[in-house]
Nucleic acid binder design. Sequence first.
DNA 1: GCCGCAGACCGGCATTTAGCCGGCCGGGCC
DNA 2: GGCCCGGCCGGCTAAATGCCGGTCTGCGGC
Lengths: 143, 143
Amino acid sequence: MLDDKDRILIGALRRNARESLVGLARSVGLSRSATQERMRRLERDGIIKAYTVELASEQDPAVRAMIAVTFDPGFRCRHVVPHLSGIPEVVACHSLTGSIDLMVIVACESNASLDRIRDAISAVPGVATATTHVILGTPLARG
Amino acid sequence: MLDDKDRILIGALRRNARESLVGLARSVGLSRSATQERMRRLERDGIIKAYTVELASEQDPAVRAMIAVTFDPGFRCRHVVPHLSGIPEVVACHSLTGSIDLMVIVACESNASLDRIRDAISAVPGVATATTHVILGTPLARG
DNA sequence: GCCGCAGACCGGCATTTAGCCGGCCGGGCC
DNA sequence: GGCCCGGCCGGCTAAATGCCGGTCTGCGGC
């Protein structure tokens, strides 16, 4: 359905949807008319839904962090998550493969409250380690 | 800061960011060059952050993953993120404190495409390591 | 008053881009 | 082989853009 050139084209459009066809064609490595045809196909097939503008948003009043949690032997998500759901600042928990068992997303008002939350998570039965990574910024977000 | 004509212009761009200046000028009720100047002002003042494309294939990704990235010495988010924004499956990038420099959130159709994306991220200049954690589930999500 | 200045706007010109279309090429098929 | 079809290229003309000079208006200082 989508080949490499489609992906390059979509990537270029994501970066700047107002780029001219000539510029897009240079990125893709095809002639202008071939690029134009691909774009029309992507629009016709509904892959491309719309071209829109991204505005400066003004809401991130909080400290956010990702806390990488590992479990003690024998413990599972279903043992730990119920305790975490009691902490209001916990926004999400993702069960992961690899060296991290659970990624806990936290949003709170201050570093002091982040400290308390980290303590609370560490104290949950079954939590072996809780490594805190403050989110300094989100230079790319979509969806 | 924003007058009615700015709002009309932004509204028209939201509907179709690839609309020509001539068409936009018709919507706004100004000459083409005045419209062009307003657009440039909105871009310069940071009101308009980017022009981007909205895709259809973003609602039910089969595979989600967090890819923990570290940078080579001397590299920063601003060097790396622009490359990542060209990968359509990249949903978000979070700049972190701690042993992880950047957390890249990915949503794609299959493990095979996840493999390709991981390769693409690894190949970005400045990326030292890219550790993939597949998201097995999200037992808690709110807000 | 009135002068100069700055911002927003208009219109014209040269250049660039887009829309359209005929033609080329390679792969699949009979 | 001969045929068709999809993907691509390049040329032509019309449309859009970049650029810039010029007009108008509001504003502050003299």
